[in-house]
Design a protein around this nucleic acid. Structure first.
Ligand SMILES: [Mg+2]
Ligand SMILES: [Mg+2]
Length: 212
RNA sequence: ACAU
DNA sequence: CCATGT
């Protein structure tokens, strides 16, 4: 978790522009400012030099989106605290997959399943959402479920897991769970909204396994 | 491209 | 760098 600690910040577009020497000052110029353009530099000299350039010469390929600073942050709002957040983890090398769900307001872990052999990220994310919906249905709760997976949210909406994974003897258990999940969706009604966890605005999904 |  | 998906 030890990261780089840059010292100088160029703000090309913000409440004020120029070179600032602290993150707090940079933040004052850019936080919530639509279209803010800023970037950190290791030295004051390189920052001053960069400030003379067009921002796109420094911000573009391979740089972090500024979504959480601008219009998007204001449009998206904050996550609903009374909600269930799920996430999955998948090891591309081993094929192992697992998933879990937490209650956002308290971060309490409500379930953890797996590991399962020979899965995919999307299968895990899908099963996690359906598991959450089934649990909430059992509790007669209509609170929202958050997932960061576009794919899994779309599968739930269609009530069908469109995986390309080949079924084998080793992942038969997973395919059985997939069948059960699709069947549950098709045989139950629920009003729980299934919502996108907006990682770029809110930060990492709190149900994340922390392995990245 | 976007999301994992 | 690898892989899964819309
Ligand atoms: Mg995820
Ligand atoms: Mg995660």
């Amino acid at each position: 978790m030890a990261q780089k600690k840059p010292k100088f910040y160029v703000v090309w577009k913000g409440r004020a522009t120029g070179v600032f020497d602290s993150w707090d000052d940079c933040q004052r110029q850019t936080a919530g400012f639509d279209g803010a353009l800023f970037k950190s530099f290791d030295s004051k000299a390189s920052a001053l030099k960069a400030f003379k350039d067009k921002p796109h010469a420094h911000i573009g390929q391979g740089t972090k989106p500024v979504a959480r600073q601008g219009k998007l942050a204001g449009l998206v709002g904050d996550p609903i605290q009374d909600s269930l957040v799920v996430d999955a983890a998948w090891n591309t090398a081993s094929g192992d997959m697992e998933y879990q769900g937490i209650y956002l307001a308290t971060k309490q872990k409500l379930f953890l399943k797996g590991p399962y052999a020979d899965g995919t990220n999307n299968i895990g994310e899908f099963l996690a959402i359906v598991h959450a919906l089934a649990l909430l249905h059992q509790k007669e709760s209509t609170i929202p479920v958050y997932s960061d997976s576009r794919t899994a949210i779309s599968w739930v909406k269609k009530k069908r897991a469109n995986t390309k994974l080949e079924e084998t003897a080793r992942n038969a258990e997973l395919f059985a769970l997939l069948d059960r999940a699709e069947n549950w969706l098709q045989t139950h009604t629920f009003t729980n909204p299934v919502l996108k966890w907006e990682t770029t605005v809110w930060g990492e999904n709190p149900a994340d396994f922390g392995r990245k």
